[in-house]
Design a protein around this nucleic acid. Structure first.
Lengths: 346, 346
DNA sequence: CATGAATTCTAATTCGTATTAGCAATTGAC
DNA sequence: GTCAATTGCTAATACGAATTAGAATTCATG
């Protein structure tokens, strides 16, 4: 900047005033033009580090997560945060806490936050790959922060989570609406909010339909495709099998498709299936397309960024609706044979 | 730091010397202890921005990509870069160029790089979601840079790409080794290095096996699962169908599985299938598990980071080997009925 | 022509740290 | 008791920009 100033025969202050378009600076148009031309000619490029130091603001947001950058699951979160941040002219500093290695997770998380604070981020988004309850790093209180998909034990920080309970209830209702009465919930043996809320949504939907007794929840040994397959195989091999299955997630739903094919059942003719999460690599690729619940990760992350950029600090607890994505895996029970499978599945 | 200095009755310089453990500084042990205690008690946290300004080094690496952060495909690249960077005590500034919107891609890329330069990153990794040839932003020359999965038109920058040609040749060889002679390559109508190198690998493997005449490459209308399905359906419905299919990627291979099921063919009994990319959400989840090629994205990204951290600037053109991941989708042709499908597929 | 007002610019300071030259006090040697 | 060497610390400066108080010049007015 000094070089530009010298070359344009003005002071460094003038260059700063011109390039930042400070109004009320009273620089004559001719000087402004001259400075701009010289700066362009010399290829002047502002030093954001110096700028940050002076302004006490880095135009950078920290993003701490567990496995998000690392897995193909919740990349909508990073994507939303990244896009939103860029649209505000800021940048994203990502810190993934995954391999705790020798240090316990809690310590690793705290360290990640502290490192971001040292870099003077203007705010921090603390995200989880799935909705869970956490004892959140205390250093988060030193800067505006938002919890993404994380239910904190105390509610002193703003947070945004999906309404998985209502979503689960709604997809189940969708099954009930077309006439299913024998619905099984294929769940997974974890006790995160994600899991329990989906279970509760299922149970409540069934109960309200007067089907409390037939609301069967079955626990697989995990939440992946092969685990869904194995569990579904048992369920579907039994003499009387359900006419619909509500899966904890799309991956397990795929396992259900595989198990159904194995025992000669056709989806959706003999078995309706719904998933959860709308995994882009799975749900739309299955044949027939899987009806599922969309977790609005992208929008949630955008909201989190907006919250920080707007300078808010109030501890709102946002709960967002999850839209149902209807595809072709649900039809009324007992329609077997009435539809020619190959044709109606596009 | 001044506050700490004042509280410990020393100068700011002393605090700096102590906290940075400068050797040869000649600070007495007692003073060191005192300073450290005071700093800890006051919760002193260094300002990385000021540090960067003074040291002319940000300990930050820029990561520019097209769709990586955004899609579940090549997340191994971000993951590797992130982990490597963290292990060196640095941070990653991610800039995804995707929605060019009103500005052309080239301009958007150049802008992304320039923004990173303004933030004084110590180096830039310029990555692509898939291996392709690009006219790379010229601003990359102003800072140490590595091209990841990008073949630049000129070779002035270091780059690292997978050896897709050899990998393709090798998987095809694997099919030939077990006895297949009627092999079809299911490709996609793009002309990126990824696509052409896999095609060439296929053709060369076939030619070297004396099967040049039966080396059939079929182009789908795209590279996704449904597109693979549609194309495979045609291929497999023909009176005489191949005994093995080499797919451009895992997603298309899944489409082949679906098409096979549709026409009553069993994988691998009636049809062997190999994919490419080892997509974690697909290849291991298919039944039978898909034999495919692993693109070593994680390791490539780590290499790129190491290159930058080591301060290298030589324009190496690294080409890395892609391991084959053997699962259960390949067996010799003509074994139909000899294996009981349900049992051997785990 | 003097005075005040407006215009146009600059000098000086600041942000928080790293680093070097050098000062003061202590110790050692004779 | 003197000088040199050593120990232990500090003052001062720089990094690159933003910002403010005010200087220098021009203009308008009576």
């Amino acid at each position: 900047m000094s070089d530009v100033a010298h070359e344009a025969n003005v002071s460094q202050a003038t260059v700063s005033l011109v390039l930042n378009d400070v109004d009320g600076s009273g620089i004559s148009q001719s000087t402004k033009d001259r400075v701009r031309v010289v700066a362009a000619r010399m290829g002047y490029r502002p030093n954001a580090v110096a700028r940050s130091l002076k302004l006490q603001r880095s135009d950078t947001i920290g993003f701490v997560s567990d496995q998000i950058t690392t897995t193909p699951y919740a990349f909508g979160l990073v994507q939303g945060a990244h896009d939103a941040v860029r649209s505000f002219g800021r940048h994203l500093l990502i810190s993934n806490v995954e391999h705790p290695g020798d240090v316990p997770r809690k310590v690793a998380e705290e360290m990640a936050v502290v490192e971001l604070l040292e870099r003077r981020v203007d705010g921090i988004i603390f995200a989880s790959r799935f909705h869970r309850t956490l004892d959140v790093p205390s250093a988060l209180n030193e800067v505006p922060s938002v919890l993404l998909d994380v239910a904190a034990v105390d509610h002193s920080l703003a947070s945004i989570v999906p309404d998985e309970y209502t979503a689960a209830k709604n997809v189940c209702q969708l099954l009930l609406d077309v006439g299913h009465t024998q619905v099984v919930h294929l769940s997974t043996p974890h006790e995160t909010p994600s899991v329990t809320m989906r279970r509760r949504g299922f149970v409540d939907a069934m109960t309200e339909a007067g089907l409390a007794d037939s609301a069967v929840t079955i626990m697989g040994s995990g939440d992946s495709t092969p685990e869904g397959y194995i569990t579904a195989l048992e369920v579907l091999s039994a003499p009387s099998h359900p006419t619909a299955i509500f899966c904890h997630n799309d991956e397990m739903a795929w396992g259900v498709y595989q198990a159904a094919a194995e025992v000669g059942l056709v989806v959706p003719d003999d078995l309706s299936v719904v998933g959860f999460k709308n995994v882009s690599l799975v749900a739309p690729m299955l044949r027939p397309g899987l009806t599922t619940v969309e977790l609005p990760h992208y929008g949630m992350a955008r909201w989190a960024v907006s919250y920080l950029v707007e300078g808010r600090t109030d501890p709102v607890q946002e709960v967002v609706e999850c839209p149902i994505v209807v595809r072709d895996s649900v039809i009324p029970p007992g329609l077997t044979g009435q539809l020619t499978r190959n044709q109606e599945n596009r």
